[in-house]
Amino acid sequence: MIHLFLGGARSGKSSLAEALCHRWPGQVVYVATARSHPSMAERIELHRRRRPQSWHCVEEPLALARLLAEAGEDQLLLIDCLTLWLTNQMMAGACLDQATEGLIGALSACRAEVVLVSTEVGQGLIPDDPMSRAFVVAAGELHQGIARVADRVSFCQAGHPIPVKGERP
Score class of each variant (00 low, 15 high):
D80W: 01
G93K: 03
E60P: 05
A109N: 08
G72P: 01
A150S: 14
P52V: 05
E73Y: 06
E18G: 09
L64I: 04
A63T: 01
E70A: 14
V114R: 05
A112T: 01
G124H: 06
A32V: 07
E120F: 07
H47M: 04
P38C: 00
L68E: 04
Q144E: 13
V121M: 04
L142Y: 05
A69L: 05
R148C: 14
L125H: 08
R111K: 15
L103M: 06
T87R: 07
I146Y: 02
M131E: 14
A94R: 14
A134E: 13
P52Y: 03
R152E: 12
L67F: 00
S118W: 00
A138C: 07
S36F: 01
E73M: 08
Q53S: 14
G93A: 06
F135P: 03
L67N: 03
H47P: 12
S154Q: 13
R51G: 09
R66N: 11
D128K: 10
P52D: 02
A71S: 12
L62K: 07
R43N: 08
V137Y: 10
E141H: 13
R51L: 06
A63D: 09
Q89A: 09
E70T: 02
A41T: 03
L78W: 05
I146R: 02
H37V: 01
R43K: 15
E18S: 09
E141I: 06
V137L: 14
A99L: 10
R133G: 04
A63M: 05
A99W: 10
I126K: 08
R23G: 12
E45K: 10
A32D: 00
A139Q: 09
W85S: 08
E18C: 10
L107P: 05
L76A: 11
Q98Y: 11
S132V: 10
A150V: 00
E59T: 11
C21L: 08
M90T: 09
E120R: 07
R66D: 14
V121C: 02
V114D: 03
L96Y: 03
V58R: 15
A106F: 02
T119I: 08
R35D: 00
S39Y: 01
Y30E: 02
V149Q: 04
G102I: 08
L78V: 05
V137R: 13
A32M: 05
N88E: 04
G145T: 09
